[in-house]
Each structure stands twice: as structure tokens, then as C-alpha cells.
């Protein structure tokens, strides 16, 4: 299966993951400062900043777009509980 590198800049940690993994599944294991509330794309708590590889994540769903908008997301923000990794990315808590 295709592999991708996910770097959590806040803790200077990189994890090699199978493509399709959600960021949430990795960030909690390594202890990144990204925090979670509902875990289902509803609360916006897990907003993260995508520092590199913006296009290497799955497209946001309509629901994610809506929550991002309601939480005044910046240009490179995504929900870590929703976004799936397709290629190399670097992220940090928003």
C-alpha cells in the first residue's frame, strides 16, 4: 500500500503511514498538541494548520467545509479527525 510521511511540527515527529489514514489516528499516538472533541467532524476542536502538502489530503466533505467556515478557519486549516492522508504532509495545531 502507498505510504506517506506525516510530520507533526509541534513535537518534531514524523510518522510513516499507509495512505488513507486519518490524521487523528496518528496524532494521538505520538502526542501532538492537536486536540479533539467530538471526533466526528462536528465541533471544530481538532482544527489543524497544514503547513506543507495541502493537496496531499482528501478533499473536505461538505460537512467539514461547513464546520471550517463556522469556526472561521484560515486558508490552510483542516479538521484532523476528518482529513485522510494521501501523500506527505506537515501539520501543527491551529
Amino acid at each position: 500500500m502507498a505510504k506517506a510521511k506525516v510530520t507533526f511540527q509541534d513535537i518534531d515527529t514524523t510518522v510513516n503511514v499507509p495512505a488513507g489514514t486519518r490524521v487523528i489516528e496518528i496524532s494521538e499516538k505520538v502526542g501532538s498538541g492537536i486536540i479533539y472533541g467530538c471526533r466526528e467532524g462536528d465541533c471544530g476542536t481538532c482544527m489543524m494548520q497544514v503547513v506543507e502538502g495541502w493537496n496531499n489530503l482528501t478533499e473536505p466533505s461538505v460537512l467539514e467545509e461547513k464546520i471550517l467556515k463556522e469556526n472561521m478557519a484560515g486558508r490552510h486549516n483542516r479538521l484532523a479527525c476528518q482529513a485522510q492522508v494521501l501523500g506527505d504532509i506537515a501539520v501543527k495545531p491551529a
Binding site: D12, T14, P18, I26
Partner: peptide, 19 residues
């Protein structure tokens, strides 16, 4: 070390090893 942001070089893991 994690607290003061040391821990030597940045860490690299494989997903499978994270348990």
C-alpha cells in the same frame, strides 16, 4: 526532554510500531 523540546533529533516512527 519532551517538555523542554529536546529529545535529540526529530523522531521518526512507523505507524505499525506505535501500537
Amino acid at each position: 526532554q519532551a517538555l523542554v523540546g529536546e529529545g535529540g533529533a526529530s523522531r521518526v516512527f512507523d505507524m505499525a510500531d506505535l501500537g
